[in-house]
């Protein structure tokens, strides 16, 4: 019997290596698919843009380190969200704040309800744009100054010839109006409003 002992081992190792490569490529595809959702979810939790960027990266690295396996898209998205929320909590605690996990627990349910697990984001955006079309020109101008040009309320007050307090009130009312419009169009449950 002519046995070649190294060969099965070689084959085994090679298959292993190739499997690992495959796994990496799969994970990169997961990153591409889920990173925007994780980032948005972190913003929804209250992270700033840059914090959300850092935490998104940490979330994916942590999941990658954990030897993650994908079962389904929904489960994966949920897993990413939980890891992201945990990272967010850790960040807050590192800053000396004492949030409880339960404080953020119902955020997840709200996120699911409001965005359909992030899947319906684009659709929500379209609806919001339609709602914005119903605003008066001053309201649209205020949104532009605030969100596109990034002006402070004082600067906006100068531009709009209003008092800063008036700008604040204006923005609050605009958002309120947009919310009511979204509730009507998307059948978000207004009865939950407290």
């Amino acid at each position: 019997m002519n046995l070649e002992p190294p060969d099965p081992c070689w084959a085994f190792l090679k298959v292993m290596a190739l499997a690992a490569v495959e796994k990496r490529l799969d994970f990169e595809a997961l990153i591409e698919r889920h990173q925007a959702g994780v980032w948005r979810y972190l913003r929804f939790l209250g992270a700033s843009r840059t914090e959300a960027e850092d935490l998104t990266q940490e979330t994916f690295l942590a999941v990658w380190k954990s030897g993650f396996e994908q079962y389904s898209d929904a489960a994966t998205a949920a897993y990413f969200r939980t890891t992201a929320r945990s990272r967010f909590l850790m960040m807050l605690r590192a800053r000396g704040r004492r949030p409880k996990e339960s404080d953020l627990a119902d955020f997840d349910a709200d996120w699911m309800a409001l965005t359909n697990d992030g899947e319906a984001w684009d659709e929500r955006i379209e609806v919001l744009q339609k709602c914005m079309g119903q605003l008066q020109s001053k309201g649209r101008e205020a949104l532009d100054l605030c969100y596109r040009q990034g002006l402070t309320q004082a600067e906006m007050a100068d531009r709009l010839e209003m008092k800063p307090e008036g700008v604040k009130t204006l923005l609050r009312r605009i958002v309120e109006k947009l919310r009511q419009c979204m509730e009507a169009k998307l059948k978000w449950s207004p009865e939950k409003n407290v």
Partner: peptide, 8 residues
């Protein structure tokens, strides 16, 4: 919930 909708 209202606040979260508005945040969104």
């Amino acid at each position: 919930m209202v606040a979260r909708k508005e945040r969104l």
